[in-house]
Design a protein around this nucleic acid. Structure first.
Length: 563
DNA sequence: GCCGTTTTCGGCCCGACTGTTTTCAGTCG
């Protein structure tokens, strides 16, 4: 775990403990804010001179951070955390249990973790507490079971298709005038906690009723006049907000977030003697669209992906972020020659259907035995086959490439002589992904500096919710990538999204080129390009930051720089 | 605990829903 994340975890834990102990909520929130700043900090916290210059981190937290960096311990942390049973922290993850209840469970009936909570439910002690009725207890019991089965968040690749399907169904309900998803899904985050859907309709009751009765709804968690929450068979929670057409924009803005962005907008409204909530900006004019509200607040419309209070509000002109239609090529795809399911022709046709001017065939290299990686002889034959197929098409350029393994020491999996025969080289780490930071950094920089490498594929090798992957020093990689004209990939596969959003932002700031590719193995994988685009947008990437947005001639010139 | 274009002290976003109780506390987003 990086130092930033390590510290963020400590501050989050402190916040939770303070919450359970019933401390001032503003103090709790201040600790959470410090944690969030640390999580999203681009630079290593250890390299920052004046920590208290970071917005949201004050003197007191700065001292704690500094001591931790120097000594490995944080003053007061152990004392605070040891002041409550450690199991109370996991109890806070049970839906429906908040700090007040957890505190009471502990003090009044000696519940200290999930196991003792289950016992207390079984032996009737919970029922003896005030405000603990049968329904509440049943909900808690169900949430405990649910937590055991589904810890964590869902990949955007799961959440978005599900949300789109729900929206299609909601649109079919009679009288529905507008429906959109909001929340972290709309902001394009790599993982989603739950799906927020906004709807306006002539008959609100009919919408609520129909929604709660959709066939894949497992459990109705809440059902009111303006809000319904359900859990669907996949395990995700879906919140449906029913709003009027006039306040659709305000509601969309409110429920899209992010939280910090919203707070700043509300504070801005207050300074202008106005009030902003999910119903509108009052006293004001029309709040049916987000554009109108931003305009009333004296701001340009801000794309959802960058609504994170990371400088977007201070920005005078909203950047023209990269869009799906800007992409003109896919430079990392597989065929049946290695572990893909498509022929070279199929790749070409998929690319043509998407309006690309070129596509790169980049099958695995020889070390990837389990992925049927190509021996040098097979690669030579494959290059020949690719060139043959390329001659058949006049509306697509098929590039002969390879996804060549970066070995643990940073050397490549083929000799330079063979790499020289390729149009494009994507170099990726696949094995030895537990290397320490200095080794991983040296390994990747060596590949970046290799004169024949054009793109570093999925630079960390992480798999979301499954594998941490390498933790190289990202600023060093970016410097090297910029200096050597090597692009860093945003692998669009929703399991990977590697580089991730904050690294994309750092890469753009450091003038390193990006390459957004699907790493397609099957035809449907091309549809995941959107997740790469959303990740790029979250990193404030412009079309000019991405080699896949280049026209053919420009791309060929760029590729020729490293050959 | 953090912050300052009214402030170095005194604020800090706010509404919906549930389950319980009978007017509201707690949780959630």
């Amino acid at each position: 775990m990086s130092l930033n994340n390590e510290l963020a975890k400590l501050f989050n834990t402190m916040a939770t403990v303070l919450e359970i102990k019933g401390e001032n909520t503003f103090k709790v929130n201040a600790n959470r804010k410090v944690a969030r700043e640390l999580e999203e900090l681009l630079d290593d916290i250890g390299s920052i001179q004046k920590i208290s210059d970071i917005k949201g981190i004050g003197k007191s937290s700065a001292i704690k951070i500094k001591t931790y960096i120097e000594t490995g311990t944080m003053e007061g942390y152990a004392e605070l955390v040891n002041s409550i049973p450690s199991g109370l922290l996991e109890l806070m993850n049970v839906q429906g249990l908040g700090p007040k209840t957890v505190g009471r469970l502990w003090k009044e009936i000696d519940v200290v973790d999930i196991a003792t909570l289950k016992t207390a439910i079984e032996d009737g002690r919970l029922e003896s507490m005030p405000r603990m009725g049968k329904k509440t207890i049943q909900n808690i019991a169900e949430s405990v079971d649910f937590l055991k089965q589904h810890a964590g968040r869902w990949r955007i690749g799961v959440a978005m298709p599900l949300a789109e399907e729900l929206i299609r169904k909601i649109k079919c309900i009679s009288g529905v005038t507008n429906v959109k998803y909001a929340g972290s899904l709309r902001r394009g985050k790599e993982t989603i906690g739950d799906i927020d859907i906004l709807v306006s309709a002539m008959d609100e009751q009919l919408v609520a009723e129909s929604f709660c009765n959709f066939e894949n709804v497992d459990k109705v968690l809440a059902k009111g006049e303006t809000k319904c929450s359900v859990r669907v068979a996949e395990g995700l929670q879906i919140d449906l907000r029913i709003v009027s057409e006039e306040s659709f924009g305000a509601a969309l803005m409110y429920f899209t977030g992010g939280k910090e962005h919203n707070i700043i907008l509300r504070e801005r409204a207050i300074k202008q003697d106005k009030k902003l909530n999910e119903y509108g900006l009052t006293p004001s004019k029309i709040c049916d669209t987000e554009e109108n509200i931003y305009k009333d607040l004296g701001l340009p419309w801000i794309p959802p992906e960058i609504r994170e209070d990371r400088g977007e509000i201070e920005c005078e002109v909203t950047p023209r972020l990269i869009e799906l239609n800007d992409i003109r090529s896919d430079l990392h795809c597989h065929t049946t020659a290695s572990d893909g399911y498509m022929s070279i022709e199929k790749l070409a046709e998929e690319a043509i259907a998407r309006g690309f001017h070129s596509i790169a065939v980049t099958d695995h290299s020889q070390s990837q035995g389990q992925a049927n990686g190509l021996s040098p002889e097979r690669l030579r034959a494959h290059i020949h086959a690719i060139k043959q197929v390329n001659q058949k098409y006049n509306n697509i350029q098929i590039l002969a490439g390879s996804e060549v393994d970066i070995m643990p020491d940073g050397t490549l999996d083929y000799e330079d002589e063979l790499l020289n025969e390729l149009d494009i080289v994507v170099a990726s780490p696949h094995a030895s992904l537990q290397q320490n930071t200095p080794d991983a950094t040296a390994r990747l920089i060596r590949a970046i500096e290799h004169p024949l490498v054009n793109i570093i594929g999925h630079p960390t090798g992480r798999i979301i919710n499954k594998r941490k992957g390498l933790e190289p020093d990202i600023p060093s990689l970016i410097d090297a990538a910029h200096a050597n004209n090597t692009a860093l990939e945003i692998n669009a596969n929703s399991y990977r999204l590697d580089l991730r959003d904050i690294h994309v932002r750092a890469a753009c700031n450091g003038n390193a080129m990006l390459s957004i590719n699907t790493d397609a193995h099957r035809p449907e994988d091309f549809n995941q390009l959107i997740y790469g685009i959303l990740t790029a947008r979250r990193g404030w990437a412009l079309p000019s930051n991405c080699v896949n947005c280049m026209e053919l001639e420009e791309l060929q010139t760029w590729l020729a720089l490293n050959c």
